[in-house]
Write a protein that binds this DNA or RNA. Structure first.
Lengths: 199, 199
DNA sequence: GGACTTTGTTACTGAGAGGTACCAAATCCT
DNA sequence: AGGATTTGGTACCTCTCAGTAACAAAGTCC
């Protein structure tokens, strides 16, 4: 399902949609939605305004596209980290370590675009409740991690642990975006390591 | 420390600063900083623009005043809830119940102004790192709650539990602002009740 | 080659943003 | 009473915002 209906007819597009969306994702992620102007978007993307509007629609529609793309990418990252972490309770600790590595990176300090957009747009945009979608898909991934880590636990307990971890991770993104230093960030990771030890 | 240097000389002010700040806090809290215009601020406050600028400075300075005021009020709420919750591990559960009552209220659905502003302004405004201030003061309150709840725990453990709860509560505000329904909100509270039972 | 279609580029629009100049009104001090 | 000082209120400023009209350029199809 491409954005352009018929790619063969007419003058060929000089820019790559995916590359532009990747750049704009980073831009929105850094600055937020309403604090990013179309002028900046034109500058960063290298695509002139009428082309942007023809391709992606209004600023709001463009941001919705960015959000859907980011959501899939983000969940993919969770899947990869959980895969890499392995089974057992050690897998939970390894997952947290991998997550911390990403968190203290340059991009990690921007927090999570979903959390940022949830706060700015109250979780939905143009009728699409992206925030609920994000929590649900994130929960599914965390549940996989915990089900493999705690094979003897009943589903209700797995769910409670999952809900705790999801909420914790959302809060962590708030901290990351707020400019906390590596020491404070590590304290928060330490806290959940300690908690996971009782599981 | 009043905002007006000399209250006696000149025409008396027709509006109450505190009442105006309370209204504007609610407005910023609902809409966010950059999505709230000076025109709206004039309309809600009933104070004309030049008076606002004379009294509170620029929009940015006004918001800084709102943030400091809100921070004190918010920490006061934590203090009150913790006082009301009482000692022992039961105090933690009661604190959470009281907090949930506030969370599912109309205002609770707006989340926390500090969390919202942290996401929008990356934790600081005009050189004031309000976000770090908030986490520190919030941590102090939670530590009091947990120290009374777990009198036999070593300080390191109290600190770890505190850091977990602080991060969890920040994440919860993200969920609240995103428009989650009461059932989902209750699930997240249940998750931390289950965790607190192992303390 | 010529009709058709889509894209790149420039210039522009109306609306709304944050912020202020200016003057009348209301108080205090002498 | 009259200057001094502060506030209320109207009208205005400049700048930037999202969005678009119009036309040239670059392709496909017949």
């Amino acid at each position: 399902m491409s954005l352009s209906a018929n790619a063969a007819i007419g003058r060929p597009r000089l820019f790559d949609e995916e590359a532009v969306l990747a750049k704009l994702t980073a831009l929105f992620w850094r600055q937020g939605y309403s604090q990013t102007s179309m002028t900046e978007i034109v500058k960063i993307s290298g695509v002139h305004k009428p082309s942007l509007y023809r391709t992606f629609g209004t600023k709001e529609e463009l941001f919705a596209i960015v959000l859907r793309r980011y959501l899939a990418e983000r969940i993919g990252m969770f899947t990869a980290l959980i895969e890499q972490a392995g089974p057992g309770i050690g897998g939970v600790h390894r997952f947290l370590e991998l997550f911390e590595g990403d968190a203290i990176s340059e991009r990690g300090r921007d927090g999570c675009l979903m959390v940022m957009a949830s706060n700015e747009l109250r979780g939905s945009l143009a009728g699409y409740d992206f925030s609920a979608d994000y929590r649900r898909q994130m929960g599914e991934q965390i549940r996989i991690l915990l089900a493999r880590a705690l094979p003897e636990a009943v589903p209700e307990l797995i769910q409670a642990r999952t809900d705790l971890l999801v909420t914790y991770l959302l809060g962590l993104q708030v901290v990351l975006r707020s400019g906390a230093d590596a020491e404070e960030i590590h304290r928060y990771f330490h806290a959940v390591h300690v908690t996971a030890d009782t599981w």
